[in-house]
């Protein structure tokens, strides 16, 4: 399995990371190196094995569906690069 330049661009678009044309080839080499190395997992017999999502062999606990916090708009917005009133501001997205 080897990634082509179009796939590199597609992954970068999915990840919302701008990739310049002159970066595609070096990224392709690096990512193919890593993916080629990872393919060693194909030799492991995983038939009938349940996937493990986390290190803690414990069930997540339920909690009451109640509001425990809130009313902190100013704190939440305190690090916003741009705000308008109590809102995060972004470039216009709807014409």
């Amino acid at each position: 399995m080897s990634l082509d330049p179009a796939t590199i661009r597609r992954i970068a678009a999915l990840a919302r990371i701008r990739v310049e044309d002159d970066q595609v080839e070096s990224l392709r080499t690096e990512l193919n190196g890593i993916l080629g190395w990872i393919e060693q997992l194909n030799e492991v017999n995983v038939e009938g094995i349940e996937p493990l999502a986390g290190g803690a062999a414990m069930a997540l606990t339920m909690r009451d569906d109640v509001v425990t916090d809130g009313g902190k708009a100013d704190q939440i917005l305190s690090n916003a690069p741009e705000r308008i009133g109590n809102f995060f501001a972004v470039p216009k997205v709807v014409e």
């Binding site: 997992l41 194909n42 995983v46 349940e50 996937p51 493990l52």
Partner: peptide
């Protein structure tokens, strides 16, 4: 597959 190897 990686999650299954993790279980092993």
């Amino acid at each position: 597959r990686a999650q299954k190897v993790r279980a092993l």
